[in-house]
Each structure stands twice: as structure tokens, then as C-alpha cells.
């Protein structure tokens, strides 16, 4: 039986679009590309389904970082969804940084269904970044 490593293990909530990024995560799995267990994926049909309220809620409930991942612009299964994603989260991300949230805490990435390796490396990077930042206390419920 292995022993749980000491130290801070961040919780990362990832919203992945069904057609690209979720498929990319599956490909990382079928290719046995290891990455840390810190990430939890919520499957959405399209990155344009991700409401900023979901992200703030995740921080409130204790997520140390939130990732939104979608198809590359121009490759959206629904043609234009990720173009709206790009505008919405460009605005939200700048606002969160302006309010003092570390840029690493909220990330948006384009990961295609063929980019299993990219999915794994994004997970590795975000986990490492957030580990070095430490637990998130900002935007978090007091309870």
C-alpha cells in the first residue's frame, strides 16, 4: 500500500468540452500518460456552456484552480461556441486578476481530441503552478 505524500495537494476543477478537450483527456488515458490526481473534470458539451458563475462557485467551495478547456478556435464542434468562450473568459480572467486573483488560478486552454499529450502536460503544469502558489483562500467561503 502506497503512502499519501505529505504536503499540499491542490484541487483543480476542469471544465472540458465533450468533443475536444474531454476527448483529449480520454486520449491521455488510453495512451497511459500519467498526470497528478489533483484534477477533476466536469464534462460540458461545449466550452461556451461554462458559466462564469460555475467558476466563481468552484473557488467559493474550495477549488485551488479552475481550468476551462475547449476546442481550438475554428474547430468548435458547434462552429462558433469557443469564439464566445474566448471573449467571455478574456474578460473574466482580466477581471479576476484585477481583483487580485493569481493568473495561474484561472486558466483557459485549447486542447483538441488528438492532444492527449498536451492534456497531460497542461495538467502537470497547472498542478505544479498551483502547488507552488499554495492553497487558495481568495473568493472562498468562510464556512
Amino acid at each position: 500500500m502506497s503512502v499519501k505524500p505529505e504536503g499540499f495537494e491542490p484541487l483543480i476543477v476542469a471544465f472540458c468540452c465533450n468533443w475536444c478537450s474531454y476527448a483529449g483527456a480520454d486520449l491521455a488515458g488510453t495512451s497511459r500518460m500519467a498526470y497528478p490526481t489533483n484534477v477533476r473534470i466536469i464534462r460540458v458539451p461545449c466550452s461556451s456552456r461554462v458559466n462564469p458563475s460555475f467558476i466563481i462557485r468552484a473557488f467559493q467551495r474550495g477549488a485551488d484552480a479552475v481550468l476551462v478547456a475547449g476546442c481550438h478556435p475554428g474547430d468548435c464542434h458547434y462552429h462558433s461556441g469557443n469564439f464566445f468562450t474566448r471573449r467571455r473568459f478574456t474578460v473574466l480572467k482580466q477581471m479576476l486578476e484585477y481583483m487580485g486573483i493569481e493568473p495561474e488560478r484561472f486558466q483557459v486552454r485549447w486542447i483538441s481530441g488528438s492532444e492527449g499529450a498536451k492534456f497531460a502536460s497542461v495538467m502537470n503544469n497547472i498542478t505544479a503552478e498551483v502547488k507552488s502558489l499554495g492553497p487558495n483562500r481568495k473568493l472562498r467561503d468562510a464556512r
Binding site: P45, S48, R49, V50, G81, F84
Partner: peptide, 8 residues
């Protein structure tokens, strides 16, 4: 087609 862009 159920993309959900409208919901946001």
C-alpha cells in the same frame, strides 16, 4: 444542437 452557448 445542444451547445449551451445561449445558457451563458
Amino acid at each position: 444542437q445542444g451547445c449551451g452557448a445561449c445558457t451563458v
